[in-house]
Design a protein around this nucleic acid. Structure first.
Length: 588
RNA sequence: GCCGAUUUAGCUCAGUUGGUAGAGCAACGCAUUCGUAACGCGUAGGUCAAAGGUUCAAGUCCUUUAAUCGGCACCA
């Protein structure tokens, strides 16, 4: 998609369009008051207080019509500059604009506003010269949005729209929105029977169907091998813990609202675990450790439960029961940099293997002014944050810093990706933690025979298998590389009666080689079965007729390709073996 | 959780102002025996998300609950 925010001309167009929207809303809803109407990556929005009135999706058409009408009138857009006093006077009946004026910087001597016909709005600008220039726009959605992004505040109504310079650009954008819906993992998940949900199991509790389970198993095997090679030790631990465990870790005080409620068994109080750190701390503590043993890397594919807000739950992307590709790395303070670097390299390695190119590294730091939200130890924080920055700079990876996004106990590196629909999500994460080892009184014996506290790195490369799978579904549009595909080969005898036995032989040969193969010997026309093989996105379709049977060969067709290739069974098997072993991204 | 919308057959959807449910695909049966994206005919399939209410009568109107969707807030 065109990033509107980074395109100066579209930026001005969209911002002007936000004003046009506000003007139209004011005409139709005279009581409306306006908060802010910024340009975003894909267009613009305006936050509006309508009092008792409600704008519904079906009203957008009406508003759009009014916008077109105003634009056609072609009023000039006039800039006016005011002093703060004048501005306060001019907007004296508008509490929202007064709030904005009051919050403006002292240095800002001049406050500007723009007038188009009967509508004036406070704004820095710039804008287009006349509303006539606003031709190719579309209102897309309407929703609630908290004033100043604070859930304690009143909910305003937000209208989203998009504006382009040319008609075909707008058309193209709308088409892209439709295409994004086509690759939404929820849709593909249903079509290809990867996962399902059921009311009786509960919201955010996906059931992985056989096809999805195959993909997940491949992902598990893949990352398990990588981690084993890097010296990780994998464990299994229970997905419940006592309340005391989480009191020890500190999560009980800081994370309780995100946990499923406590359950009492006999006299013990348990919770479903929302994370695995406490369990892994205890695994570490099982025996004494020397500095020579460190780093110790404890990994687990661990099921966790989090009480996610009902409105946040989404397919496999945001769930209440998830499986983390988790690990905790116990290191000496000296080893932080080296170990963090290894994690970053592993992330880069994995993304390369999956062909993931569109992602952002986010260095999540604390907000120094928010003493409530973060563990209070400035020295620790500064040291930790600088360490991460240092490594990232050393590696030369691009990243941006996000103040106020750190965990309670330390700074972290998050990798953000954009799903087909909805805002960016975090995939991988690596978090530095000085606090948890203290809370669990972890130690190792250093070279001088003294007890020292190790540092912990929490890390998840896939994040959760759930979210990563959701992302891979959307990346591949459901056309999985052969090593991941639930069914890798579909075998179709042209006439099951004549080539059925031969086809059965080919199927068995492939099965012997652990290829996931299906035979389609239904009494249906070839075209019909071939079409189904293509729409189900199986990478290889083998077609067997008399010619193949006579020559002891097979003919295969790749998903999405028209041509057929005829080779020996052995050559085909070898080709597949290599493709799967190398985890090739695209088959050819 | 908040604002708004939606929920009808396995899937995608239709169903006028309230009069007692329909299509296509899929499934099953019959016929067909076929060389690269849908042959034909037939059969079966629904407490219209759930509960309550209004009415002579509710898929349709009202209330509550749940799930889903678009955002917000939260977040792996």
């Amino acid at each position: 998609m065109i990033n509107i925010k980074e395109n100066e001309k579209l930026n001005i167009l969209n911002h002007s369009c936000a004003h046009l929207l506000a003007q139209a809303v004011k005409h139709l809803y005279p009581k409306a008051m306006f908060w802010v109407g910024p340009v975003i990556e894909d267009g613009f929005y305006y936050d509006i207080d309508l009092g008792e009135d409600v704008i519904k999706e079906e009203d957008l058409e009406k508003i759009e019509k009014e916008m077109k009408k105003i634009a056609k009138d072609g009023k000039r857009i006039v800039r006016e500059e005011l002093s703060k006093e004048e501005a306060l006077e001019k907007f004296t009946n508008d509490p929202y604009k007064l709030d904005l004026i009051e919050r403006m910087n002292e240095e800002e001597q001049v406050i500007s506003c723009y007038t188009q016909g009967d509508f004036t709005d406070l704004c820095r600008g710039p804008h287009v010269d006349t509303v006539k220039e606003l031709k190719y726009f579309k209102l897309l959605k309407v929703s609630g949005a908290y004033w100043k992004a604070d859930a304690n505040n009143k909910m305003l109504q937000r209208i989203y729209g998009v504006c382009y310079d040319k008609e075909d650009e707008l058309h193209h954008h709308l088409q892209e929105i439709e295409e994004a819906k086509e690759r939404d993992h929820r849709r593909i998940g249903k079509d290809q029977e990867l996962f399902m949900n059921h009311k009786l199991v509960g919201s955010g509790m996906p059931l992985w169907l056989p096809n999805g389970a195959i993909i997940r198993k491949q992902l598990e095997n893949y990352i398990y091998e990588k981690e084993q090679k890097l010296g990780y030790n994998h464990v299994y631990t229970p997905c419940v813990g006592t309340v005391d465990l989480y009191k020890t870790s500190g999560h009980w005080d800081h994370y309780q609202e995100n946990m499923f409620p406590m359950m009492k068994v006999d006299e013990e109080e348990f919770v479903l675990r929302p994370m695995n750190c406490p369990h892994h701390m205890l695994v570490y503590k099982n025996k004494m450790h020397s500095y020579r043993d460190l780093p110790i890397r404890i990994g687990e594919f661990a099921t966790d439960f989090r009480y996610e807000a009902s409105g946040a739950v989404k397919g496999l992307e945001r769930v209440r029961c998830m499986c983390q590709n988790d690990a905790h790395l116990f290191v000496t303070p000296d080893q932080i940099g080296e170990e963090f670097e290894k994690v970053v390299n592993l992330i880069l390695d994995v993304y390369h293997d999956f062909g993931i190119k569109d992602y952002k590294f986010r260095l999540s730091l604390r907000d120094k002014n928010d003493k409530e939200k973060y563990f209070d130890d400035d020295e620790m924080w500064d040291k930790a944050e600088n360490k991460l920055r240092e490594v990232l700079n050393h590696l030369g990876v691009e990243y941006f810093e996000a103040v106020g996004e750190a965990a309670f106990y330390g700074p972290k590196l998050d990798v953000e990706v954009r799903p087909a629909v909805g805002p960016e999500v975090t995939l991988s994460t690596c978090q530095l933690d000085f606090l948890l080892p203290r809370n669990f009184e972890l130690s190792y014996i250093d070279a001088h025979g003294e007890k020292k506290i190790p540092v912990v790195l929490h890390r998840a490369i896939f994040g959760t298998f759930d979210r990563f799978t959701a992302f891979i579904i959307e990346e591949t549009k459901g056309v999985f590389p052969t090593w991941l595909a639930p069914v890798q080969v579909k075998v179709i005898p042209i006439n099951p009666e004549y080539q059925g036995d031969y086809a059965q032989g080919v199927v068995e040969l492939l099965q012997q080689a652990n290829i996931r193969v299906e035979l389609d010997d239904r009494n249906e026309k070839l075209g019909y079965r071939l079409r189904e093989a293509q729409t189900s996105k199986v990478p290889y379709t083998i077609i067997l007729g008399d010619q193949e049977k006579e020559n002891n060969t097979i003919s295969y067709r790749l998903h999405g390709k028209k041509e057929t290739t005829t080779i020996t069974k052995e050559d085909f098997l070898e080709k597949l073996r290599i493709e799967i072993a190398t985890k090739a991204l695209t088959n050819q």
